[in-house]
């Protein structure tokens, strides 16, 4: 298992335990997230992979009964330290959800929503952000002539790419994706997968997926979780061709349960 802090470790999860009320959902999870790489989390439903993902930008804070022990060091600072500014963590670590969730407003306004909150006012600057983010999300060519149209009129795949563009608008360093293609058709899925590959040049991506082929196609590192524990973490090629743990082997070869 790889859990030493190496030079390219951007996020270092150490000894993480998490409870929802009395029920423990994560057990002593330790793993690195490498900079400019895609890390995939796989495992059966309820194994804790989405919970783990949501700890990385403190999304679990909004659940009252949630209690966390352990550290998540991001750029060397523990994001669970009392002095940590949660808003700045979430600005630097953006999130994409399973179901596309554009705001019920224009395509343009979806992208500028975040920058405006963070104080960007100049029209030229906002225009530049919209174009830049839509280009990075490979959506610009499809929507450049109808930026004022409602985002709700876009297809599911376009909406998801818009959500990615929106996440990029506040210049994050990390993008968390929680099953970002599970509501999309195969073509839209392939576009998001290609996009993830391009995004890692500038961003660090952590993706939760039920689709093992997707994990094996797009990720550099993979963690396999089972019943709240990280069973195995390693380079994706190794995990999918010669895993070291019997449990991982059984899960990825479909001999589970």
């Amino acid at each position: 298992m790889v859990n030493e802090m190496s030079n390219d470790t951007l996020i270092d999860i150490k000894g993480l335990n998490l409870w929802y009320g009395q029920s423990q959902a994560l057990y002593d999870v330790s793993m690195p997230v490498h900079k400019n790489k895609i890390t995939a989390l796989i495992g059966p439903s309820g194994c804790g992979k989405s919970t783990l993902l949501r700890t990385i930008n403190r999304m679990n804070d909004i659940i009252d009964s949630c209690r966390i022990e352990g550290d998540i060091n991001y750029n060397g600072n523990n994001i669970y330290a009392p002095a940590c500014n949660v808003m700045s963590v979430r600005k630097r670590i953006g999130m994409i959800f399973q179901k596309p969730n554009p705001f019920p407003m224009s395509i343009y306004d979806n992208i500028t929503y975040g920058p405006k909150i963070h104080g960007v006012r100049k029209k030229e600057e906002l225009d530049r952000i919209v174009e830049d983010c839509l280009k990075q999300a490979v959506l610009w060519e499809e929507v450049k002539d109808r930026l004022e149209d409602s985002a709700m009129g876009l297809s599911g795949g376009q909406q998801q790419r818009l959500c990615i563009a929106r996440a990029l608008s506040v210049s994050p360093e990390v993008i968390l994706m929680d099953e970002p293609t599970s509501a999309l058709d195969p073509i839209a899925t392939a576009k998001i997968e290609d996009l993830a590959q391009q995004l890692k040049e500038k961003y660090t991506v952590v993706i939760v997926t039920h689709n093992m082929q997707q994990a094996s196609r797009i990720s550099d590192y993979t963690g396999f979780m089972y019943m709240g524990k990280l069973v195995e973490f390693g380079e994706t090629d190794d995990i999918f061709t010669r895993p070291t743990q019997e449990l991982t082997e059984r899960y990825i070869t479909g001999r589970f349960g």
Partner: peptide, 9 residues
């Protein structure tokens, strides 16, 4: 079936 690990091997 897109086999993995020992099945693919």
């Amino acid at each position: 079936f897109q086999p993995m690990a020992k099945d693919m091997r």
